[in-house]
Nucleic acid binder design. Structure first.
Lengths: 224, 224
DNA sequence: AGGGCTCCATGAAGATTCTCGTCATGGAAG
DNA sequence: CTTCCATGACGAGAATCTTCATGGAGCCCT
């Protein structure tokens, strides 16, 4: 398992590197946000462990930037801030897990391994499921509650992306970069329109809403 | 493993049923071609063992009919005819293997198990490979000799079907039914045109031909 | 071996279909 | 009250799919 550790405290970083090595994993260390971003963007890591506060660029900003570039490597955020609000913003920024300092390495290790297992399971999975919604990447078919649904190409990509990130907020920027391949702001409401159309197909006629609006942030797919 | 045996010789059929049962498989028996066709079309068999000569409808015709309906269950043909030509016509009709009577059951069993293994491996496989040609059903991408190739939807379906049936003759009727969803003869050369375009993309610029024309029968994808 | 016939290959061109994105208005949320 | 989001309608553009027509290759029969 190949792990990227972003941590500015030299001592802590060395300790992590050593501990991961003992557990049979390979860890690279980045001492600041910029370096971390560069490494993450270039290298092919299984999991990232990111300290929230770092020089040159803070952890959340690095994560958000990576996410908007399509990087979906699981991230565990390390932070001294343990308030609920801090956790929420951390997870919203694209984190997959959040651990408060001080922590036990054994727990960190366990969580990191869970993240990796989940990710590799997801990759080979050909069918995504969220609630009673089902997307089969092989046959390109969508079903909700057993009923077949027909989507247009862009709608399909949109839903696929949302499903891959089910349970986490998906920002407009993420969608623009990964579903539209736009690397600029189109200054229109393209996304809104397509989300609306998608809703018309996957929600109209079914009881529970599944595609939620997070006002001021984006959208989130989440099934009961 | 669920096996369908089409064999009119009652004694031989009973023997096969028993022998398959002893090997841990379930075998159903059809005594004539029509019954066999009906069972095969309805049931969900892993492998079929088909006698070539049967009352009411001969084995090859049954196989061809099943194939044109999109049934891809592997078929092993049993026959007293052992000449090369007989084998060829048998395999061309849609057979996957051919065994001449008299045969040893152990060999039949082994061959049947190979057919099944191949089929089930193929189903979960998300990437097809024929020679240096590669089709990834997940990403919908095509590569030949490492070079990315762009196909249109219909071309993709066409190639996908050809690759799934690589090494065996694919008739126009099979293509019409499974790639075009036509259940009638369009009276035009739609297929030829698309095959031509496909060739233009997957053969032009590469050395070896890979999509072969079987005159009077159809096409066959086969890599060196 | 050659002529004739059938089958296949391929270029071009047209038309339909379908998708995508924009705009504008109305409504909900904070 | 202001900002953000939802949605209906519309228009334009693109792109794919077919069809047609011609030329070439293969096969068979004499």
């Amino acid at each position: 398992m190949k792990i990227l550790v972003m941590e500015d405290d030299r001592e802590a970083a060395d300790y992590l590197k050593k501990a991961f090595a003992e557990a049979g994993h390979t860890a690279h260390v980045a001492g600041d946000g910029e370096t971390g971003f560069a490494l993450a963007d270039a290298g092919d890591y299984d999991v990232m462990v990111v300290d929230r506060m770092m020089p040159r660029r803070d952890g959340l900003s690095v994560i958000a930037a990576l996410r908007s570039r399509g990087n979906t490597t699981p991230v565990l955020i390390l932070s001294a801030l343990g308030e609920v609000d801090d956790r929420v913003t951390g997870l919203r920024a694209g984190g997959d897990d959040y651990l408060t300092k001080p922590y036990a390495f054994s727990e960190l290790l366990a969580r990191v391994e869970v993240l990796n297992r989940r990710a590799s399971a997801r990759e080979s999975e050909t069918v995504y499921r969220v609630g009673d919604l089902e997307l089969d990447r092989l046959s390109h078919s969508i079903k909700r509650a057993g009923r077949e649904i027909t989507l247009q190409p862009r709608e399909f990509r949109l839903l696929e992306y949302l499903m891959r990130h089910a349970g986490q907020v998906v920002t407009r920027t993420m969608l623009l970069e990964n579903v539209w391949d736009y690397h600029f702001d189109p200054q229109t409401n393209v996304i809104d329109v397509h989300v609306s159309r998608l809703r018309g197909k996957i929600e109209k006629g079914f009881d529970k809403p599944i595609l939620h609006t997070i006002r001021g942030a984006g959208y989130m797919l989440k099934g009961g």
